[in-house]
Amino acid sequence: MPSEAVAQLSIDLDALAHNYRVLASEAAGAAVAPVVKADGYGLGAVAIGRRLWAEGARSFFVARLAEGEALREGLGPERPAAIHVFDGLTTGSGPRLVAAGLTPVLSSLPQVSAATAFARQLGRPLTAGLHVDTGMNRQGVTPDEARALAQSIDRLRGLDLGLVISHLGAGTDPADPHNGRQLERFAAVRALFPEARASLAASAGIFLGPDYRFDLVRPGVSLYGGGPQERPDPRLKAVARLTAPILDIRTVRPGERLGYGAKVVLERTTRVAMVGAGYADGMIRAAGGGGYAWFAGARRALLFVNMDLLAIDLGDAEAQAGEMVELLGDNVHLDDLAAAAGTVAHEVLVRLGRRGERTYVGEI
């Protein structure tokens, strides 16, 4: 038991390395560039980046400029990775991008114009990527705009365009025909920039087949244990394991209500364990009533989640205060918790709080 009643978050970098190898094998020759945005999906981008560098990763993706700077500093000069920034060249970011050796992924015509102007100021080529929107309607120039750029040397003058990317909107559903439409559009755009590497697939796209992998893949959530189809995948291991201690055990009679809002009404006499974790520790309130925890070798229904406490149905299990309950990990799958909360694995991970104690297994 910890010295005080706090949740324990163990981050298993050996499991992360296993998942990286699974994804690299599935990618079948394409370079694997891990996505470590949002501080490595909430698990620590620097520790994750160092371990994945040791596994062979030489390119990474982040969302924000500051994330790229922090990763560059954390990796250090002995790990000279290529770090791509999805936000691209935002206003005034050019000097910081260059100082940290970051590669902006340009996602609009104004960004392309700003990048060429900044390259003129530098007096040397600016390394950049180009994001093309093939149907997700979130980021990227349109295919027609990409074609116009490719046909006008002046509009890309001063840019060393080494990468062209897009992103699948329905990759988690292999049967969705939108995947094929996006693939067709991206293949046409890729042909416009034959000297650049091409990247379409994130975690889900890697598993759609070789046509989707191109030169480089960008796994995110599946590195951290999330299934590529938003359900548990036995090939992948849990990276985050959240446990918390039982604080109290009580027997509650039928008809009694539990927790805020008094929405949970017990239909039978129930032995309830109050556990020292809640949404301040990353557990999502909406998972109460549909999710589960793991204790004494079996699943235990998650009755409610409050800010600092949650309740589980102990059934007939023997238990005492101080024993630890698994809330996320090998036995409580990331995708199952997400489904119970009506969300996705990504959100579960980035919500994991820092109030408890964090430890890393297999840290480099």
Rank of each mutant, 00 (worst) to 15 (best):
L266H: 01
A240P: 05
V252D: 00
L236E: 00
M283P: 14
P245E: 10
T251D: 10
G282V: 10
G282I: 09
A240C: 07
R241P: 09
G255R: 00
R271H: 06
I246D: 11
K237T: 02
R241M: 13
A286T: 08
Y260T: 12
T270A: 07
T251S: 07
L236H: 00
F295A: 04
V272M: 06
V272P: 05
A277S: 15
I246E: 09
A298C: 14
F295G: 06
K263C: 04
V239E: 01
K237G: 02
W294V: 11
R299A: 13
A238H: 00
T251K: 02
G276I: 14
D248V: 11
V239S: 00
A287G: 02
R257V: 11
A240W: 06
L242I: 12
R268G: 00
R250N: 10
L247Y: 05
V264H: 06
A286Q: 12
I249E: 10
P245Q: 05
A238E: 03
G261E: 03
K237S: 01
A273I: 14
A287F: 06
V239F: 01
R253F: 15
E267C: 03
T243Y: 02
G282N: 10
A293V: 13
G276M: 12
A298M: 14
Y292P: 08
A244K: 02
D248R: 01
R250G: 15
G261K: 04
G282A: 05
V265F: 03
T269W: 09
Y279A: 08
G261A: 04
L247W: 03
T243I: 03
R241E: 11
I284H: 02
A277H: 14
I284D: 03
V265Y: 06
R253G: 14
A244W: 04
G288T: 12
A240T: 03
